[in-house]
Design a protein around this nucleic acid. Sequence first.
DNA 1: TGAAATATGTCAATACTGCTGACTTAAAGG
DNA 2: CCTTTAAGTCAGCAGTATTGACATATTTCA
Lengths: 182, 182
Amino acid sequence: MAAQGQKAVEIIGGGAGSVAEASLPPMYDMIDLMFFAYREFAGDADQRLAAFGLGRAHHRVLHFVARQPGLTVTELLEILRVTKQSLNRVLKALLDKQFVEVCAGIEDRRQRRLYATACGHALALDVARLQSERLSRVFGMLPEGARQQAATFLLAMIDSPLRDKIAAMTGAIQDRGWNGER
Amino acid sequence: MAAQGQKAVEIIGGGAGSVAEASLPPMYDMIDLMFFAYREFAGDADQRLAAFGLGRAHHRVLHFVARQPGLTVTELLEILRVTKQSLNRVLKALLDKQFVEVCAGIEDRRQRRLYATACGHALALDVARLQSERLSRVFGMLPEGARQQAATFLLAMIDSPLRDKIAAMTGAIQDRGWNGER
DNA sequence: TGAAATATGTCAATACTGCTGACTTAAAGG
DNA sequence: CCTTTAAGTCAGCAGTATTGACATATTTCA
């Protein structure tokens, strides 16, 4: 990377357009809140998974395999947006510990379709419940409709066309609150 | 860690209480959305910072130093919840590249108070604007009040007493929409 | 049938971010 | 003077990610 080791003083003059352009004041409150809220949320899972020698990467794999049984490796790579080398290491650990199992594809036998085992489902569900408990506490102290509003906000944070895929997967877009409908 | 290397089959019988307990169905939609939304949001910053050879850890430090000039190292450690060894590596890089500078504390000269340089502020602002643009697009397509609702949701996701500190810092709790007030 | 494309796995090297433990320096404060 | 506190440093380790190169099995197509 060309800019490695570059000093600050060397770059303040260049590219003035992007930095000095007049624009809205940054939403510092939202930026801070996204950081802290996500850390708390993900921390719930980290804690539970660490008891099995599994990290955050293992959790993500287990979560999506449990959610979508029969997922292929390529599909999982697209969802997680990691390289197959990265995926393979964590997937191998999940196979070793028997939280995930594979089955050759029926139509295309090159594919290795992924399934959570009974234990894998149990663990994934356990973590999902822990995270859902936090969400329940949250929506319990918020007004009616807060869950739908939060889902709509989070979905809108995702760029298309990924948004459309996720909307289809989660069923999160429920024809209310979208596009200024009020 | 005692459970390291443990096989799934060895643990399905034990601890049945925590896994088998009857409870609400997990909010899979919210769990998925938190993952994807945060990845998109943080990805904006990653991309911009990578041009300067800086990673996500550097961004977090720069962000909070720019937000709270004169922050001490101890205060920063508490905000980020990392060890001083972890912090020191990224902080040293920011000092080397002259995005951050230090000044001995006036009252307590052991303290090294941290300040963003002009370049540091420019970079922090640049990234904050990029993230704010995403947020603007989001709130532009959502109904009136969506920003306040989102801030309230995110704040509620954080456990007390951290929540109270952050609420004070961001001013995010604006006496509306809290605790079923409707 | 044989070549190309695809799905997957693997080895090696590297980078970033986090951790623990042990030790040091400098300053504050009783 | 002695203890505590704020901060920095060195060494080692772990988890997660990357790129590049190569191997294997299978499908697809000319």
